[in-house]
């Protein structure tokens, strides 16, 4: 596993243009998170380009042990970002795939490897990009609230951006970030792990939901949709089984949360 730390990665100045690689989960299941990502970046004066040909980073097949199938999908994405602009990914997990695993996936093909390495240098996880490239600072216009933050394992350990989501939330004056037990522990999603090891995965996500609730947070935010679907889906199932009509643990992508808190009304 490759990994970054902030001391090793050099960040470029804020660009006029950036690509969005939205990820398949956002495109299909959480488009609001993608839209709010675009709005956040545009408000900072960055023109956001969304290559229509994008599909998926290839990680599901890659981590399931189907490298050829992953390579076929990843190869398509290699061709999309022709201008030298940064590529912003609203998911630590997919960003890590493109930044760290693409070079491994194409290690045996010199021409594609060169492309993969060049792309890898331009991949930024959204909160990493907001903190280190954009220098995001917007006034918090929301009502006081307490939220819990879930940072994905890939954001934390592969991208080395364990702190950026937290830093963005800490800048919001009326937002309190609840302290949760074992914040650094995996939620049990792990892509196909959730269906391949259903009992272990259920035990992990049940523990995660419990510690998020025990933190006293009203909701959970995360920069990764996979984790979010796992956590919120588990909490909703518990509500369903208990006959609760109101969500005991609602949540949203950090892009949507930031957009709401920092004055969506200011959109041009």
């Amino acid at each position: 596993m490759g990994s970054d730390t902030q001391r090793t990665r050099r960040y470029p100045p804020k660009p006029a243009d950036a690509y969005l690689f939205a990820t398949c989960l956002v495109d299909q299941f959480a488009p609001q998170a993608g839209l709010d990502t675009v709005r956040l970046l545009e408000r900072e004066g960055i023109a956001v380009h969304f290559p229509e040909e994008q599909t998926c980073c290839g990680q599901p097949a890659y981590s399931s042990g189907y490298p050829d199938e992953a390579r076929a999908v990843a190869r398509r994405q290699l061709e999309l970002f022709t201008q030298p602009w940064p590529v912003v990914v609203p998911s630590g997990s997919c960003a890590a795939m493109m930044r760290h695993h693409y070079p491994k996936l194409f290690a045996n093909d010199p021409a594609l490897l060169a492309k993969a390495v060049a792309l890898s240098d331009r991949i930024f996880e959204l909160t990493e990009f907001l903190v280190h490239v954009v220098g995001f600072r917007r006034e918090d216009c929301g009502a006081p609230c307490t939220v819990a933050l879930h940072t994905s394992c890939q954001a934390r350990r592969e991208m080395g951006v364990a702190e950026t989501s937290g830093a963005l939330l800490a800048d919001l004056a009326a937002v309190t970030v609840a302290v949760q037990a074992r914040a650094e522990e995996c939620c049990g999603f792990g892509g196909t792990f959730a269906v391949r090891q259903p009992d272990i995965s259920a035990a992990m996500v049940t523990d995660k939901v419990a510690s998020l609730k025990e933190s006293g947070a009203q909701s959970v935010v995360s920069a990764d949709c996979g984790c979010l679907f796992n956590i919120l889906g588990r909490a909703a199932k518990q509500d369903e089984l208990a006959g609760r009509r109101q969500a005991s643990l609602p949540g949203e992508h950090i892009a949507s949360f930031l957009w709401r808190r920092t004055g969506e009304r200011h959109e041009q």
Binding site: A22, V26, D27, Q28, F29, A30, P31, Q32, G34, L35, V38, F50, E52, A194, V195, R196, P198, S201, A202, V205, T206, F229, N230, G233, R234, A236, K237, E240
Partner: peptide
């Protein structure tokens, strides 16, 4: 196995590419 412990995943009415 997903819905043994979680509510089902449902696609959004419009994809991000549609919204954009």
């Amino acid at each position: 196995a997903w819905t043994k412990s979680r509510t089902p995943l449902v696609p959004a009415p419009k994809r991000l590419r549609d919204l954009l």
